[in-house]
Nucleic acid binder design. Structure first.
Lengths: 206, 206
DNA sequence: GGAAGAAACATACAGTCTGTATGTTTCATG
DNA sequence: CATGAAACATACAGACTGTATGTTTCTTCC
């Protein structure tokens, strides 16, 4: 039933393999050099394919970058989902756990630079928001909706709240990513974000 | 005693004039096309100077962009300062007023794109944070420190709190900037941000 | 007031990159 | 196995950035 590990032989497999090589190489080079300084010759060389193969698989450099961003966002969402799935009955606990999981994953240097710093600039704010809403913020929005429905969270416009909190969490992750002492920074960021959530929380019986 | 309007004649005035022309032209073109697509030939042409003049005044394209960002940040900080200066005795009111002033100013399309979206990507996160800390976030941090000192705000690590709230406010401004109904979006964003601040507030007598 | 030096500006050039156009190999299919 | 298409490789045109070199304008000092 799985479609990924089924190793579809032939051209499909060939294409998938080069795309995978390009994705891995691009991710590394984009993270190290930034979008603008990452040249397509360098990426193709690192991937072990020609530049022609790159332009056959992707419309342009931005499309390759977009695929990298979408892949990383999907990986992150999956990871957070896995950590919060078992907490469906306690929405506030799920939010707190999800926040911590997000901080840990999103503060990885490559994620911070590629997805959060360069993503909006390269893809444009709208396109980037679409990817983010489909992956990262979706999880957050669902969590907030659940908490609000359970009366554990102050009633506020959901989309706006999700966006604002997402911004706060992104900035916190970037802070952790560049901190000299990441562990301490992560603890501090978690404390502040928990305080923000607490401030918006409502007691269980009301 | 004024040094700006004193029209320093000669070469200093000549340089200042070309820099001003370049700044204005660059601001417009960066806002319209983005950093990457904004070519130095186009900027020089729009400013009415040669490309040589541009490279004489600035080390490279990024330095010109940096000057644009710093100028816009300084303008914003000055504007917020002016609106909150008279509220020094009520720190929470100053924070709320400042938030609204920030949302109004930072949701201008050119500010959103140049300073908030492209700034970190072009200048690098650290350099951008330095400019932001010197201008925008400084005002916020001072306001938070005052409120905390007065016991009106939950005691939290100041720098982290300022960064996190700054992220929330930036994201809110971007939301307003691209909203179909900016007035409504601004009201919603202000409501959410006020709720966040309220959640962190402490009663006056304690 | 004029000559020497520096600052501001303009032009020309080298190197690199992006995206496309054209050619070649590998695979699918009847 | 021959035909067509997909995947890949190479060659090319156009554009841009940053620098090097040349010219004009101002300053300064004798």
């Amino acid at each position: 039933m799985q479609e990924e590990s089924a190793t579809p032989d032939g051209q499909a497999r060939r294409s998938a393999a080069t795309r995978a090589r390009l994705l891995a190489a691009a991710r590394e080079i984009f993270a190290a050099d930034g979008y603008q300084a990452a040249s397509t010759p360098a990426i193709a060389r690192a991937a072990g394919v020609s530049r022609g193969a790159l332009y056959h698989q992707y419309d342009d450099k931005a499309a390759l970058f977009r695929d990298v961003v979408a892949t990383m966002q999907a990986e992150l969402a999956e990871r957070i989902d896995a950590e919060t799935r078992m907490l469906a009955d306690d929405p506030m606990a799920a939010l707190r756990t999800g926040t911590l999981a997000f901080l840990r994953a999103a503060s990885a240097p490559d994620f911070a630079r590629i997805v959060m710093i360069e993503g909006p600039a390269v893809l444009g704010r709208d396109d980037w928001s679409g990817i983010d809403r489909a992956a990262g913020t979706a999880t957050l929005r669902d969590g907030l909706a659940a908490a609000m429905a359970a009366g554990r969270l102050a009633p506020l416009p959901l989309e706006t709240l999700a966006t604002v909190l997402s911004g706060a969490m992104n900035e916190a992750a970037l802070l952790v990513a560049t901190a000299p002492d990441p562990a301490a920074a992560l603890a501090g960021a978690a404390t502040v974000l928990d305080a923000v959530l607490d401030g918006l929380a409502r007691p269980a019986n009301r």
